[in-house]
Computed example of a mutant assay.
Amino acid sequence: MKNKSPLVVANWKLNGGTDLICASVSKFLRHNFKVNIGIAPPYVYLGDMANFLKNSSIMIGSQNISKFESGAFTGETSGQMLKEVGCNFCLIGHSERRQVFLENNASCQTKIARALEANLMPIICIGENEQQYELGLTKHILYKQLHESLQGQDLTGKELCIAYEPIWAIGSGKAASPESVQSIHAYIYEEICTIFDKETADKIRIIYGGSVNKKNAAELLAMPNIDGLLVGGASLDPEHFSEICELANKQAANATVQTNAEAVLA
């Protein structure tokens, strides 16, 4: 049984502008979501989004974070800067960062530490590519990504989230089946129990990303080991993303009712 409120995060990537900001803000200010909702717009819009949504429960996050704290690093943005502009979380190690910008597990480890130091929640993205998937190497790849990124991290009083995003599913329209994601998330949970203690592992959300939309969101969220969703393309349509958030709301409400019923019968 899930003991964490679902987390649904929108990753706008290199998309959006003032029109999307206005449409999204207008849409979300009219809703009272019970689940945790986050939006990660491009850097230049972080301040505007944080300001517009400051009186809402919507979290604002960055799509990346520098591994440096300060200095002569043109184009970099530190965790402290992100926190000061109003960020609550940051994505780290997204597959596009790994593939296009050659990020690796070592840099992810440093970036996670920087985010934690700045009191930002790191959302560490992990996942296998199509060739690795076909060769049956999924767990081997995830093991390396988890252990090499998380080993030695101090989560005392901090939050951490893991996003499983099979690379072959991102933007392809071929989302992994809820059953297969459930199985992989169970494996991820087992591994983080070996990296941290079980009490700490139980507080870490494990969310899924990869061609998530309103058609498959409910089935994914119904799985016991899927604690939320990381939404890419579908989040660029405020109406579509809002529907996904509503589905998460409904799922969370149903889970609460079931938990209360079980408590009465116990």
Results as ranks from 00 to 15, higher is better:
Gln99Met: 12
Gly71Leu: 08
Val85Trp: 04
Glu159Trp: 11
Ile162Cys: 06
Ala163Glu: 08
Thr74Lys: 09
Leu150Ala: 04
Glu96Thr: 06
Ala115Ile: 01
Glu76Asn: 10
Ala175Tyr: 14
Ile170Cys: 07
Leu160Cys: 04
Cys108Pro: 01
Ala106Cys: 04
Ile92Gly: 15
Phe68Glu: 13
Ile162Trp: 05
Thr110Glu: 15
Gly136Ser: 09
Val100Glu: 11
Ser70Ile: 01
Glu130Asp: 10
Lys139Cys: 15
Leu160Ser: 02
Leu102Phe: 13
Ile170Thr: 02
Glu165Leu: 09
Glu96Ser: 08
His94Leu: 14
Leu137His: 13
Lys111Val: 03
Cys108Ile: 05
Glu130Ser: 08
Trp168Phe: 10
Leu150Tyr: 09
Leu137Val: 04
Ser177Pro: 00
Ile167Cys: 08
Gln131Met: 07
Arg114Trp: 06
Tyr133Ile: 06
Glu179His: 13
Gln131Trp: 01
Asn129Cys: 08
Ser70Gln: 08
Cys108Thr: 01
Ala118Ile: 00
Ile123His: 01
Lys139Trp: 03
Lys83Leu: 13
Ser177Gln: 11
Ser107Thr: 04
Leu135Glu: 15
Thr74Gln: 10
Glu103Gly: 04
Gly79Asn: 09
Cys125Tyr: 00
Pro178Gln: 11
Thr156Gln: 08
Glu69Ala: 11
Pro166Val: 09
Leu91Cys: 10
Asn105Val: 01
Pro122Lys: 02
Gly71Tyr: 06
Glu165Gln: 04
Leu155Lys: 04
Ser78Trp: 12
Ser78Val: 07
Leu116Tyr: 04
Leu116Gln: 02
Lys111Phe: 05
Glu69Pro: 14
Ala163His: 03
Ser70Gly: 12
Leu150Thr: 00
Glu128Tyr: 02
Ile167His: 03
Ser180Met: 05
Ala169Gln: 12
Cys87Gly: 13
Glu103Pro: 01
Glu148Arg: 09
His94Arg: 10
Leu160Asp: 03
Met81Leu: 14
Pro166Tyr: 09
Leu120Ala: 05
Gln153Glu: 11
Asn104His: 01
Asn88Arg: 13
Ala118Cys: 06
Ser177Ala: 15
Leu102Asp: 09
Lys83Glu: 11
Tyr133Cys: 14
Ala72Pro: 01
Gln80Thr: 15
Tyr133Ala: 15
Pro122Glu: 02
Leu120Ile: 00
Ala175Glu: 11
Gly86Lys: 10
Gly136Glu: 04
Thr77Ser: 09
Leu150Trp: 11
Leu120Trp: 03
Glu117Thr: 02
Phe101Ser: 00
His140Ala: 15
Lys83Cys: 11
Tyr133Val: 05
Ser177Arg: 10
Phe89Leu: 15
Pro178Lys: 08
His140Ser: 15
Tyr143Ala: 12
Thr156Gly: 15
Asn88Cys: 11
Ala163Met: 07
Pro166Cys: 12
Gly173Trp: 14
Ala106Thr: 04
Ile123Gly: 03
Lys67Cys: 13
Thr156Trp: 00
Tyr133His: 15
His147Cys: 13
Leu120Glu: 06
Tyr133Gly: 09
Gly71Trp: 07
Glu69Met: 07
Leu116Val: 08
Gln151Leu: 13
Ile126Tyr: 00
Glu148Leu: 14
Thr74Phe: 10
Leu160Gln: 04
Cys108Asp: 08
Gln109Val: 01
Thr110Phe: 05
Ala176Arg: 03
Glu69Arg: 11
Ser107His: 00
Tyr133Asn: 13
Tyr164Ala: 05
Gln99Trp: 07
Thr110Val: 14
